[in-house]
Design a protein around this nucleic acid. Structure first.
Lengths: 143, 143
DNA sequence: ACTTTACCAGACTTGTTAGTCTTAAATTAG
DNA sequence: CTAATTTAAGACTAACAAGTCTGGTAAAGT
């Protein structure tokens, strides 16, 4: 089981962080991404296409083609990616699965999870992917 | 998508909380549980059987039979249930899915998620299901 | 003993996610 | 123009999770 996000979403987050390292409008091919990130080629292709359709990435065909961010890196947060791939159900669903969980009818961890959920949200929006990518020291992201 | 736990796990947590409300060795049938909690009968049966095999519940066949907690309610935490059904991968896997994420090779949210994970763990172990059940006001748990 | 009530066990079906494959379309370089 | 390269699109398969069904076994009450 993945931790919170689907595998698709994890791959998307990794790929977008990688693209955030590239300057201006430099294009990166799926081939390069799958090589660096060890993600199945055609699967990643579908994910990137989906992100491109939603405007988070822009793409170009042909040699020298590939993918790049669809907007400035400092305007994209991890939350944007999660929202596009997995949706935001985790922001309002009960963590114990009670269909009717609410403030008046709380589950045993309602308050506690509410706090955690806010912190989780903050983790996803408080920094943009430009900042994150610059601080990144992961060897698989090196040229 | 479920928030963090599988649907099986959510059902298990709900059912065990319900059982924690019953006194001493009183038995509760699957029928009663599915009626109160709106969980598919045969699916819940399989989940309870699995919990019984792992010792978290005890079961009895025949009329007056059913399920009850396999140990005192104040010795069971939500974490015990999660551990039995979903496992504890969420306690050590990278939230962004990086296979090699670690202290020396951290993902952009490594530290942040580390703190959240500990709080999540604490949410699951700091109170036992006996306490939780007693404070529970959910109408579907009423007789 | 017999009948009823419940759990037990495992096969089965369905739905969703993950991953693969093939053909088409666009762009670049020669 | 042509060939090579790369994304686009959609069908296809595989694996897993969710949910159903059937026949069996144990216990209780009469």
């Amino acid at each position: 089981m993945s931790v919170i996000f689907s595998r698709q979403c994890e791959y998307a987050l990794q790929a977008v962080l990688y693209l955030a390292l590239k300057q201006n409008g430099e294009m990166t091919s799926i081939r390069e991404l799958t090589k660096k990130l060890k993600i199945p080629y055609h699967f990643l292709a579908k994910i990137l296409q989906s992100l491109a359709q939603k405007g988070l990435l822009s793409s170009l065909k042909g040699p020298t083609g590939g993918f790049s961010l669809g907007m400035p890196a400092d305007e994209i947060t991890l939350f944007h990616i999660v929202e596009a791939i997995d949706g935001v159900a985790f922001m309002h669903n009960c963590v114990l699965g009670f269909p009717d969980c609410s403030g008046e009818n709380p589950c045993p961890v309602h308050e506690r999870w509410g706090g955690l959920r806010e912190e989780l949200y903050s983790m996803l929006v408080s920094r943009n992917i430009g900042q994150m990518a610059r601080e990144l020291t992961k060897p698989e992201y090196k040229t």
